[in-house]
Design a protein around this nucleic acid. Structure first.
Lengths: 127, 127
DNA sequence: TTTATAATTGCAAATGATTTGCATTTGCAA
DNA sequence: TTGCAAATGCAAATCATTTGCAATTATAAA
């Protein structure tokens, strides 16, 4: 892999940020210094290389995150922020699926959506 | 809600089919009798009315399914077919998230992707 | 260090799924 | 049966994402 400035900058972002980002957000976080298509190309590249993983939330936009351990998220549909979910029954699912359904699992996606505690307070005020 | 022929036909489809379908598939299953935009409008309508639920798999296309009990799926990335997953730790997740993270959950998505047992056999032959 | 070259970039234009405007049609309540 | 809001078909628009191409750049070999 050719380590270009664009790639270095994207990866640096993900050193600091452990929640999913979409292409537009990355484009802006890097001060629009690189072409959006270049961002897209690199995100695809990183996904192919298993450096990043993608996920689509209810807004139907693709987000990319750096997988670490069990990466599951809760997405606040009001403030659009993520929290990590540190609870995972993946092993139980995997055992069940592989043993009883004879499926060879390549990927799994789990996320929750809702309203975070902060936004619930806001809601009390505004509602 | 106005029960039009289009809507009746779409709902009839979902009486027989319990796995996710995308707009194009529904359009074809109904013999292209209705406009694609009408299909889309109705799928959106059904989702708003909580009659259908949508999910995006790795092909980045929106699929709609009729939720019944715990609707989780395993998607075969080779033959593009679905199987239902009858195992769900939703309650455990929900309790944890609501009690420890004080999130009010509105939705959750769980699915696995991989290669079904049939396609694994095919793979043996072709590979 | 310079050079060769394949990979990467920027820009503009294309794509594909999905949405929308508008004139016409259709369910359904009165 | 009629009136009207809601739903439809069609064409055009939109939005995220991808692609073609000529110019640039990172890296490995000389």
């Amino acid at each position: 892999m050719k380590l270009t400035k664009t790639r270095r900058d994207i990866l640096k972002l993900y050193d600091e940020i452990d929640y999913p980002l979409n292409a537009e957000e990355i484009y802006n976080l890097l001060n629009r210094e690189y072409d959006l298509s270049t961002i897209y190309r690199n995100l695809n590249f990183f996904e192919k290389e298993n450096i990043l993983k993608s996920i689509v939330f209810s807004d139907k936009i693709t987000y990319y995150y750096k997988p670490k351990g069990h990466s599951h998220f809760i997405y606040c549909i009001r403030c659009k922020k993520f929290e990590s979910l540190n609870l995972c029954f993946e092993k139980q699912y995997r055992d069940y699926i592989e043993n009883n359904m004879h499926f060879k699992i390549t990927d799994h996606i789990l996320y929750f959506e809702g309203i975070c505690s902060e936004c619930q307070k806001e809601g009390d005020k505004n509602a």
